[in-house]
Design a protein around this nucleic acid. Structure first.
Lengths: 189, 189
DNA sequence: GTCTATATGACGATAGAC
DNA sequence: GTCTATCGTCATATAGAC
């Protein structure tokens, strides 16, 4: 275990609570109680409740953006790119499943610049995904069903991994990746 | 247009607001403003904010339960049953996409009996789904990937339809059903 | 770094006039 | 059926002692 800063401990505790009840329903008193301190004491480590949410979401969104950019710029086949995207989602989910709940369900409570920044990253991510699938169809690497439905279907599954994976006790990450690729790609290839 | 009761108008307006910001972040004052009246006036038609949430969610959950029971008790092949489940989700989504946001994201804010009732229905639904897939694998009607992953993947996509379908302008319901079946089932059959 | 005390405002909901 | 006025509670956040 690396020693965690008090701020990071707060963010981790908040991620769990936000996952259970959502950002708006979690109070600073709830969070303080989970940390074993009083609400006022939280403000020695963080500036606001909003800052906690932004830290959780923006960090994760940037991970996805970085990962997707690397995949897009790689010289790989469409199938390999899709495999890398599945990999990316599974890796992030394993590392921070709790935070992904906020990214998926509470992004609309971000304020101003962070909201715009997040929405831009999400839009770019989806567009990159769509372009990869489209190019695969053009090159006859994958079947030509409705592109939107293929993109939507795959992304829905990957985005919901955070809800499902922590409930599976004894499934190995490597096996998960393999089976996930089979199920998601066999419908497409 | 059928004439709607004032209560139903409130529930419909609430469904839209809950979809946009989530149950906890929507105030009775927000809802009243959307209706063009004052917050206090809402209470002539509904008993509480909680009652609105419960009405939205329980009604939809019962639709899914009824539909699933009919499918389970039918004498059809596994493939046909899966097609019927996809049909069910698309039909409910077309009829009440806004309400499905609450069912998916705000069920944890239900209180007492309604929370238990909902959780029981959801658990039964997933178990019925899993049993249909399992039986299909046993009878070699569908491929034997990891059952949990197939169930999770399909259900994730169907449950997220409410987010995606309203954004697609000109896609016909029949075409949607057909392509959705292809994408979801070809990965399985 | 945590505490007590508190400022300031918003929340869900009710009472009673019209 | 809608209004104004208001109650009691809880929200985020700050000030300042220890």
């Amino acid at each position: 275990m690396k020693p965690e800063s008090r701020k990071q401990e707060i963010i981790n505790a908040a991620s769990i609570l936000f996952k259970e009840k959502g950002y708006s329903a979690v109070t600073m008193r709830d969070l303080a109680k989970a940390m074993g301190i009083k609400a006022a004491s939280l403000y020695n480590h963080i500036q606001s409740k909003q800052e906690i949410l932004a830290t959780i979401i923006i960090e994760l969104a940037e991970e996805f953006t970085t990962g997707m950019n690397r995949i897009v710029n790689s010289e790989k086949s469409t199938i390999q790119k899709l495999e890398n995207i599945i990999d990316l989602h599974i890796d992030v989910t394993l590392r921070n499943a709790d935070g992904l709940a906020s990214l998926n369900n509470d992004w609309m409570h971000l304020e101003e610049e962070n909201l715009q920044y997040f929405e831009k990253m999400r839009q770019d991510y989806e567009e990159n995904f769509r372009n990869i699938v489209q190019k695969g169809v053009d090159k006859s690497e994958i079947r030509s069903y409705n592109i939107e439905i293929m993109v939507f279907s795959t992304l829905s599954t990957l985005r919901t991994l955070y809800l499902w994976y922590p409930k599976q006790n004894d499934i190995d990450a490597a096996i998960l990746k393999h089976d996930m690729m089979s199920v998601l790609l066999k419908g497409v290839v």
